[in-house]
Design a protein around this nucleic acid. Sequence first.
DNA 1: ACATATAGTGTCTTATAGTCACTATAATGC
DNA 2: GCATTATAGTGACTATAAGACACTATATGT
Lengths: 237, 237
Amino acid sequence: MSEKAFLEAYNPKDHDSPLVTVDAVLFTFHEGALKVLLVERANHPDRGKWCLPGGFVDMQADENLEETVIRKVKEKTGVAPPYIDQLATMGNSKRDKRGWSVTVCYTALIGYQVCEAGISTVQDAQWFDIAGLDRISLAFDHQELIRIGVERLRQKALYSIVPAYTLPDKFTLPELQHVHEVLLGKPLQKKSFRRRIEQADLLIDTGQQRTERGRPATLYRMRKHSGDHRFVANLRE
Amino acid sequence: MSEKAFLEAYNPKDHDSPLVTVDAVLFTFHEGALKVLLVERANHPDRGKWCLPGGFVDMQADENLEETVIRKVKEKTGVAPPYIDQLATMGNSKRDKRGWSVTVCYTALIGYQVCEAGISTVQDAQWFDIAGLDRISLAFDHQELIRIGVERLRQKALYSIVPAYTLPDKFTLPELQHVHEVLLGKPLQKKSFRRRIEQADLLIDTGQQRTERGRPATLYRMRKHSGDHRFVANLRE
DNA sequence: ACATATAGTGTCTTATAGTCACTATAATGC
DNA sequence: GCATTATAGTGACTATAAGACACTATATGT
């Protein structure tokens, strides 16, 4: 049989295939804490429980998985996040009561203010503080996905400035250091922190400053691809 | 409606779902070169082209995705690899002529000798040198998956000894250094290389030695979880 | 003006990688 | 046997980047 004939005769529904969903662990940083966006499930299974934003791939609307996850995040926040990265794919027969299911989970970062308006218009979406999250029961294996997402972001805090994407467009170095400190759960040397960022030329000085208390701090914004930069040496844990 | 009633009424086939496959980029190191295992496709589409070992999830036989990939690798090599890690999930409407498809791709490492017998009994499986692989046309997006796998392994060579899993159970330090050098495409300082491994106590001295030419080299084997160790500083690129 | 708070720097120390010459131990050839 | 060659492994100094911490700079509040 030719390939053409094979493809004409082929019907995907002849095979059983797992359910395929996409989820996003979307982090932000606000009021000194790392937060994750959760959504209240409107339907069975696990109706009423909180879960990650996500859902089924729409084979008509979505060209690829990334489009699916961006569509899902936009539905809840109103905007596309500036940082998105594949986190893990979970697939087994037990994670969803409806049967064998696969979820492709992404991690995304966004500033709090950027999507504040969008989130306030969506009744069922809410930021949850990472600390204490283990006390509430989430749908499916989403608790585990968040754990993996936090661990990944923590690792990145050691050798990159990816956590900067949890901040607004413009931010100060002390703010960024604070995010890293919260992620790593310990104080960092400001000299070391500043020095490596300066040497790698990762940030653009906006020329602006911001004063809260004390001396004003310089406002920076991320240079293009600064999220891809890996320092040759980690901050010590 | 109760959740119980919902689940009883639920039929996964009511939804369209993408095809779900699992693939493995299996590397080994032999005769001074990094190799990847490829399989010749017996069926449409892309019949006759080489591709990664992998295939559909068997929802009856497989409890989870990792079982699927291990089953598929065992079919071609006869053994389960000592190192396996999720690499990336590719999902879009174009990668497979049969329609919207998702592949969960793993990367795995194994010693050449360990599976030599298994591979020789499988007619359609063969090791390919990474160098020059870009000249042959692979099925689906498997060329891209291999590229991502090589890049990931190259990164790991900078801050871990994960590449050791491409070697036999027992190996010498110069052998391991050579793997890293091939991955990074440049010579490394043996003093630096040895020192960091010794300091982190990652290998077990087997007490045995091996002589090829010159002074005999000590044979080591990996300590448990040595693959998880991350050096605080990278080798310089 | 001074106290307080926070931003940012100077400089020494420490940890770890790079360099490279040196020693150690095998096989080989005369 | 002994020199030669090849490869394994070490010693010791240098270079780089992080840690520590005191010091300066520049705001606000009284």
